[in-house]
Amino acid sequence: MPDALLSVRGLTAGYGAAPVLQEVDLEVAPGSIAAVVGANGAGKTTLLRALCGVVGATAGEVRMDGTDLRGVRTQDMVRHGIAHVPEGRGVITELTVEENLRLGHSWRRDKADGRKATAEVFELFEPLARRRKSAGHQLSGGERQMLAVGRALVARPRLLLLDEPSLGLAPKVTAQIMALLRRLRDDTGLTVLLVEQNVRSALSIADTGVVLSLGRVVAATDAATLAADEDLRHTYLGF
């Protein structure tokens, strides 16, 4: 994949002396959904955090559409087209739904398109439109997930990083979120890098899958192959 939107090579990163990620290679093609799966503690969250510069990398390189992201500050990642929905969603609970969304595009110069994108999000997530004046802490888990994804989308990202979107959600809501990701990929060409414990639902919508184990990539292939590989599933994913 020479024309990958995101390309990661030899990424080693972690907290303190012991690296959590070791020489991770990863490529995500534009307009595709890539799922990173693996057991608890495999380094999935650290991978996303390292991509955004929240966790420092000690070696390796990350390129977004050819641009080297080394030295780019976390606060500037969104300007390179990367939106990150972190673990636990990161809805700012003191702010209202509208304010969270406004924050999502407040860095952009194109205010008109920011408002347009917000209107699109309200269309996409009906429940949010009804609760636009509600504070974040009044929302249900599902609504928070919608808000977190919506807030990422108003930035009009090229790459969406999603950390455990299914966590704490009812299966039905998880299915809705997954279906939405697929629709966004098909309709807008959005590229998604998804980290999930919920392997089945992640691989069901993904184009490619990467299995992380103890901070290393142990398998990387298309999602269907991965889902069918029983040995791999037994060894690394536990089902």
């Binding site: 606060q75 500037d76 972190p86 990161g90 609970t93 924050l103 930035a155």
Partner: peptide, 10 residues
């Protein structure tokens, strides 16, 4: 309120 999240939002 949320410095880390705010950084991710630019």
């Amino acid at each position: 309120f949320a410095p880390d999240m705010s950084r991710l939002l630019g």
